[in-house]
Amino acid sequence: MSILTEHELKELSSQIYKMAELSSEAIVKSVDSLKNSKIDLAREIIENDNIIDSLEVEIDNECIKLLVTRQPAAVHLRLVLSYLKINTDLERIADLCTNIAKETIRLKGRPTLKPLVDIPRMAEISIEMLKKALRAFSEKNEKPAEEVIEMDNAIDELNLQIYRELFSYMAENPAKISEALGLIMVSKALERIGDHVTNIAERAIYYIKGIDIRHE
């Protein structure tokens, strides 16, 4: 049995970063496709999802290989376990982006109900959160992770606000229900993305401090 080397950890974290970058790009692109009715871009997101899927499998295998062959202990064990879990979260984020892209395709050609402001805002916040959560990992600093958990409240609030607004549109004009429902799905997907990023931040705290703060 040999010891987990710094090189192997670095390689693993670069893979995780790649996964996070692909996911964040998926968020940007999916919201861009929805906002500017870019159907081609939406199709591209759905196609590119399998790149993220195969990267997820690759990272999972890599983590399991390290766990079996290196048998890491203490902080290294927590890091590998955290990566194993956030890998799934990142993949789910990308999946939610394909859901947004599918909504874009479904809403094709219809004039948008109103200029989209809150949905791009949600996307921006979630990307900022994702960056912060990963920064917590690389800097071994729990502060950004705690900020992420705070920021998730802003996303939840925006989601509720969008719900209320779209309900009023639906009540005014039944012809717009389909479109409003599509936007509600998008908003819900972004809210779920925020939750997944919060999970990542909680994993970061688990890795740094060794305590589990989930469901508190």
Binding site: K10, S14, Y17, K18, A20, E21, L22, S24, E25, K131, L134, R135, S138
Partner: peptide, 23 residues
Amino acid sequence: NTEPVDKIYYEIIWNSSLNEKIK
């Protein structure tokens, strides 16, 4: 909005295609 010096490039450049080429 953070100090980029001394950080690893992929922690700063959040772009998968650019990072792949740098690697």
